[in-house]
């Protein structure tokens, strides 16, 4: 196989893929998309790859040129595929444990929410995107409060990660970037101590990589 990621360095959704591939030790090629200011993802050439005009896109190409390229869009779908296909430990996307898999899916949907609020606020504040800033910030705080409480109860049970397992899953990786960069959207994490401790744990994972704007622990 040969993996290619269409990516932009400052995109949280692209960073999620880089993070998982680094943790899994996967080699891949990057095609840089001029997301800003070039808006290349909205151009005709890119839309031939993803008609929805957004990044990231993953291409998994068979080594021997035999068979078709597998093309996948949407950040969280790509996490599912990469973990299911390439994680030999089976922990990142636990396909054999129905309850745990359900939880992973639940928190992946939660991550759609943090992307649409916390990361939308970041796009507003960094790049001048036209979002209702008060609304998206308030939405992010609602989600952060829920996650902070959830993680606090997990800690009381001696557990460190979002889902009911002794190890992290792709749900942790899907939520983490929106949370750790929230201050770029004017969303403080001061009131969420359990959330802050969890971001420290994610940053200590083997294979963890930074994205610009994220500080090491």
């Amino acid at each position: 196989m040969a993996l290619t990621l269409y990516s932009y360095d400052l995109s949280v959704n692209c960073y999620k893929q880089r993070l998982l591939m680094s943790i899994l030790g996967l080699d891949y090629e990057t095609v840089l998309v001029d997301f800003f200011p070039g808006l290349e993802h909205k151009g005709e050439a890119f839309k031939a790859i993803n008609p929805l005009g957004h990044i990231p896109v993953l291409i998994d190409r068979p080594d021997d040129g035999d068979g078709d390229d597998f093309v996948l869009r949407d950040a969280h779908a790509i996490l599912v595929y990469l973990a299911a296909q390439y994680d030999e430990s089976g922990q990142w996307y636990p396909t054999t444990n129905a309850r745990l898999l359900g939880e992973v899916s639940q928190w992946m949907l939660f991550a759609e929410g943090t992307t649409n609020t916390a990361s939308a606020a970041r796009l507003h504040d960094n790049l001048g995107y036209d979002f209702n800033i008060d609304e998206v910030r308030a939405g992010a705080h609602r989600l952060f409060r829920v996650l902070d409480e959830h993680l606090w109860f997990r800690e009381q049970e001696g557990q460190e990660w979002v889902c009911s397992a002794s190890h992290p899953t792709i749900a942790d990786l899907a939520i983490f970037p929106d949370v750790i960069l929230s201050e770029e959207g004017g969303i403080s994490r001061l009131d969420y101590p359990a959330l802050r401790r969890w971001t420290d744990r994610v940053r200590r994972l083997d294979g963890f990589v930074l994205m610009p704007g994220i500080q090491p622990v």
């Binding site: 360095d9 400052l10 840089l32 200011p37 070039g38 290349e40 610009p212 704007g213």
Partner: peptide, 14 residues
């Protein structure tokens, strides 16, 4: 162009 921009954008985001 994209490579040049990328370098500066990474520096700036840091």
């Amino acid at each position: 162009d994209n490579g040049l921009r990328r370098f500066q954008q990474v520096i700036f985001s840091q």
